[in-house]
């Protein structure tokens, strides 16, 4: 019996005005799999993620979650699907008007799933699971370092026990050691919770640590996908150039030379 993909994208197309960002994306992510999408800046990684999350509306194509079409879904059904998602944003996107503990439990409190007096304890529990001490709970996001903000963002993403977690450039802006700490945490949490994960990044050390499978996006299309271990022998000139970070190759950056 073939499993239904947790997320399935077919012919996903998105453009802003005349600019085509996603041409025709086809991608299946199986339950419990950690998929990493790689690609250069402006290749359409973030737009793909935002389309799945329902933050952007594609012009055409299909997005299925657990076999259920999400494009054109009503508000109630969309909310039900959203409850399966957790998301760690590139900038962490913590609510700066709320203390850390309220950030972590925001989704649970807003949905009325927990009572306010219990929220702090639940937040502390989630903060511990990402290696943060309980006293962080009372701080405001502005008092945290970049690495701590990412960890709070991760705690917020896992607090509602989602089935699918999205990671948008989880190590951007962090030093190599903190980046590795975040990568380790992602691997631990994803394996322990048994969730499906979709990460977008251009950090190859993240790819090698987090991914079960890798897909490369270029000019709005998936040009290669396969298991993580195959990436070094992909036989694809675009992938080769990208993973070795070479300026010379088929991917031409639009840089004006003086």
């Amino acid at each position: 019996m073939i499993d239904t993909p947790k997320i399935s994208l077919k012919g996903l197309h998105k453009q802003f005005g005349q600019k085509i960002v996603l041409d025709s994306i086809d991608l299946d992510i199986m339950p419990g799999e950690s998929m990493v999408i790689i690609g250069g800046s402006g290749s359409g990684k973030s737009v793909t993620l935002k389309c799945i999350l329902g933050l952007l509306h594609p012009e055409s194509g299909s997005i299925k979650v657990d076999g259920e079409e999400t494009i054109g879904m009503g508000r109630k059904d969309r909310k039900r699907i959203q409850e399966k998602f957790g998301m760690l944003f590139q900038s962490a996107a913590l609510f700066d008007s709320l203390p850390v503990w309220e950030n972590v439990t925001f989704g649970l409190l807003a949905a009325g799933k927990i009572k306010r007096p219990d929220a702090k304890e639940i937040a502390i529990e989630n903060l511990r699971s990402v290696g943060l001490s309980p006293d962080v709970a009372l701080l405001s996001p502005a008092e945290l370092s970049g690495g701590m903000q990412k960890r709070v963002g991760l705690a917020r993403a896992i607090a509602s026990k989602p089935e699918i977690i999205f990671f948008d450039e989880p190590t951007t802006g962090l030093d190599p050691i903190m980046a590795d700490v975040i990568n380790e945490l992602i691997v631990e949490r994803v394996k322990e919770m048994g969730v499906t994960a979709l990460t977008i990044t251009h950090d190859m050390s993240s790819v090698r640590k987090i991914a079960d499978k890798v897909a490369m996006i270029y000019k709005g299309n998936i040009i290669w996908s396969g298991p993580r271990n195959d990436i070094d022998n992909s036989g694809n000139a675009y992938v080769e150039q990208f993973i070795h970070g070479r300026a010379e190759g088929p991917i031409q950056m639009e840089v004006l030379k003086a």
Partner: peptide
Amino acid sequence: AEIGTMRVTEQIDAMATLST
């Protein structure tokens, strides 16, 4: 200013992903 800052720092998107 408050809602605009939330928009450009992705806090509004984050709120939507938290089913709010």
